[in-house]
């Protein structure tokens, strides 16, 4: 899992197309306001929501041109002062283009963004607003929801791309431990699940579609429910499906933060360092909580407990 150097894309076509598009980009002649090109990886709902929110939040002086690969057959010459690449596909294409304006990659997982530089220092003129939550926040959330947790279960596969030492530290700081179980193959998922659940108080979902996908979620949730082990998910979708709770950042929230960074960029002409989203959303499944006889704190209480945790450290 560590030896490959090729970048594998599900859809190479899109990547190549974006690359062609990006070659045509060049810095504009700043006669008017800042020109921002928005590059979407996809035209599905989260990207559209991001675009709509960003458009509303940007001051009129900033010119926003959107490139949606799904809508546009081929690229046209665009000049921009800043490229906002939404999602990994767009980010990779934008960063790979030479020459290019500064790139702000948004709605990208940290592991994905880091992987674009293959372990080297990020290229000049690039930054990011990640989609995932910092581990510290994730763990603070977990303990705000379930203060008595001792053993945090985690399933990972050979495809898992996460830096987990902050998770281990953060759980250990709260007196808990992480029970990690590898999933050798999709066939063995359920055996691994039984093992991890039998020694855990909570199962923490991670972004790995080898393990968590629309086909497997049913068995994961039913099995964890049978063990009376709640699942902490990654999105509203997880909570609707039956996870106890989730902490995540919505495209709207990333768009708001992006708008603020664009405005700051316009003023200072520089990009902030890559970072995690400032705001987050909390989703709770009260029905599942009641059934598992877990007393869920209110959302306000959870946020309060998370803040107290921060101050205490």
């Amino acid at each position: 899992m560590l030896n490959g150097t090729k970048k594998v894309w599900k859809n190479r076509g899109t990547a190549i197309l974006l690359l062609c598009l990006l070659v045509l980009l060049s810095p504009s002649s700043r006669a008017e306001g800042l020109a921002v090109t928005l590059l979407l990886s996809d035209s599905s709902a989260p990207y559209q929501t991001f675009f709509e929110t960003l458009r509303q939040r940007l001051p009129a002086s900033i010119k926003l041109v959107v490139h949606d690969p799904a809508r546009e057959g081929n690229g046209s010459a665009v000049s921009a002062d800043l490229v906002v690449a939404v999602g990994m596909k767009a980010a990779e294409a934008a960063i790979a283009a030479v020459p290019r304006p500064p790139v702000l990659a948004v709605m990208v997982p940290k592991a994905g963004y880091d992987s674009l530089f293959l372990g080297q220092k990020a290229a000049y003129g690039t930054s990011a607003i990640y989609l995932d939550q910092p581990w510290e926040r994730q763990v603070a959330f977990l303990y705000a929801v379930l203060p008595d947790v001792e053993r945090v279960g985690l399933l990972y596969s050979s495809e898992t791309r996460l830096e987990v030492s902050p998770l281990l530290n953060s759980v250990a700081n709260r007196g808990g431990s992480v029970v990690a179980q590898s999933v050798q193959s999709a066939d063995r998922l359920f055996a691994s699940l039984e093992k991890v659940l039998s020694g855990s108080d909570v199962l923490l979902a991670i972004p790995d579609s080898r393990i968590y996908n629309a086909a497997s979620i049913r068995n994961i949730l039913l099995t964890s429910y049978r063990h009376e082990v709640p699942l902490i998910g990654l999105s509203q979708g997880y909570v609707n499906a039956g996870a106890l709770a989730a902490i995540f950042t919505l495209p709207e929230q990333i768009a708001e933060q992006t708008a603020r960074q664009i405005v700051a960029f316009d003023k200072k002409k520089g990009l902030a360092a890559p970072g995690y989203p400032e705001n987050f959303t909390v989703a709770l499944n009260n029905q599942v909580a009641r059934s598992l006889e877990i007393r869920l704190p209110s959302e306000d209480e959870i946020r309060k407990r998370m803040r107290v945790g921060e101050d205490g450290r």
Partner: peptide
């Protein structure tokens, strides 16, 4: 430091 496979895609959050 990992590879840019689809496992690092934001799609994991939008399933």
């Amino acid at each position: 430091v990992a590879l840019a496979t689809e496992e690092s895609s934001e799609q994991n959050y939008f399933q």
